[in-house]
Design a protein around this nucleic acid. Structure first.
Lengths: 271, 271
DNA sequence: CCAAAAGTGTTTCGAGTACACCCATGC
DNA sequence: GCATGGGTGTACTCGAAACACTTTTGG
């Protein structure tokens, strides 16, 4: 601050891990790095451009995603992390509903275009540039935590959703099955969802009630930074009394003849 | 990352909020800023010096504090936060036991020397430079949260302590009284303290058992960054099942004739 | 003997969890 | 009629919370 031993000043950069749910799996957005590997989308903040603004610009350019939930993750500045040059990377993570990231949606099914962004499931990541793998891992860990006591999860769903969809989002992120009845009771009891008049009928099953997120009044907005004066947050987040932690594993997978060996799979205590 | 519109690159700086408990109150270390106000100690990382290393250097220089608990807080990079020049500040918070910060301890009682660091209670902060007030507030918020599900609290105590001292640390940070019996039971039940053979006798009261932190084996180290390969953590932190959250407000202040109006003071749900 | 902090158990309440069956639909 | 997901209620357990008196010491 008042000690300025500026020799070769580090470059400030930004990297963003954008998550979505596709195929009931948590996926990250990746872009081709220079060296054949993939990387998190990123940029260098322009002068007069704030760090948040830079991150949002990255999201808009790489994924066509605007107004998404965005939170700062960590700042990496180890001199050895980038062999090319000293770089201080301010990293972020962001969430979009699958229906709200046009660019990234277009360029996926075809085996990846050129400079095109593509989604990759976090459960099976390809090789990533630099320490980006670590960044993704850390973001997932954070997301898991936040999922348990906030309503971030809703950022991954469209405006209208069924409770089944909501539960699958939770299960995909936490990596463990939840009990349907407990999940529903708790979600309704917390008052964070409101039923709409619409129903969704999809295929050969009973139509499902559509719900919406009840982010009204926002009793206390929470999130990463000490948001004091600055711009209004693009999305609302509620702090709730533990949404899922309690909701342990759901019913046994096989309803018939439950195998009596309770000690092999499913650990899930996670990092 | 691959888009480099580097015009006037921002300066990277570091600021650290070092906390301790003195006089049963949470206090921060402040140093004189250029302009008559006080500021958090900080510096600019040297080339080839990591961000963590820079923060530790600040702590050593400003407070003579080594091997303290240190965690990254947030990175502020709003172009307007420092009118002088574009600055990206990577901020940290740190904890020391009162008996382990020599420099800061020397320079306090006398009405502040010249370049000397001094402690200020967070409950009554003087005017701080730039957005440092906001940084302190955010750090306190984070500390409160971490206190509830980790053992950070022990970083604020000497190696041997009484359960009364431990409880006062919790109360000072959380800003609310805790129930003595519930607190002790839980702490012992969690197995995070071990009794020593020593007793402390201090003045006109029953001597107190001395305890130590039971940070053995460290079932899972937790903290800020995704510590993967790098150096071994200087201190151990355990994740515990809620140390205090439950411990609501303690016994009514006046044991005699408890006033029957339960609706005025004590809110404490905090931000 | 008085003040001051240390130390110690029990009861109540509610959240968390486990668990199984019927319903509405499309094919 | 059958496969598929939607929808619903209860009982048990355990942690969280409230609560008051005795002990040891120094002055």
């Amino acid at each position: 601050m008042h000690d300025t031993s500026a020799d070769r000043p580090p470059v400030v950069s930004t990297a963003v891990a954008l998550f979505t749910i596709r195929d009931d799996a948590l996926q990250v957005l990746l872009v081709p790095a220079g060296d054949g590997t993939l990387a998190l989308p990123g940029t260098t903040p322009r002068h007069d451009e704030g760090l948040v603004a830079a991150a949002r610009r990255v999201l808009a350019e790489a994924a066509g995603a605007e107004d998404v939930w965005l939170e700062q993750l960590y700042t990496f500045g180890d001199p050895t992390r980038n062999p090319a040059h000293r770089e201080v990377a301010v990293t972020w993570y962001a969430l979009v509903a699958a229906d709200r990231a046009p660019a990234a949606n277009a360029a996926d099914a075809p085996a990846a275009g050129d400079g095109a962004a593509r989604w990759a499931p976090v459960a099976a990541l390809p090789a990533l540039a630099l320490d980006h793998r670590r960044i993704v891992d850390y973001a997932v860990q954070r997301l898991r935590n936040k999922l348990e006591y906030t309503t971030v999860g809703f950022q991954l769903l469209p405006a209208r959703f069924t409770l089944g969809e909501l539960q699958r989002v939770y299960e995909a992120i936490l990596g463990r099955p939840l009990d349907k009845r407990n999940f529903r009771r708790k979600v309704e009891l917390l008052g964070i969802v409101r039923p709409t008049r619409e129903m969704r009928r999809a295929g050969a099953q009973r139509p499902a009630q559509l719900w919406r997120f009840a982010a009204t009044e926002a009793p206390e907005a929470i999130g990463g930074p000490p948001a004091n004066t600055a711009a209004t947050p693009p999305v609302e987040l509620l702090r709730v009394a533990r949404l899922s932690p309690s909701l342990r594993r759901g019913p046994s997978r096989s309803a018939v003849t439950p195998p009596e060996n309770p000690a092999a799979p499913e650990r899930g205590s996670a990092a």
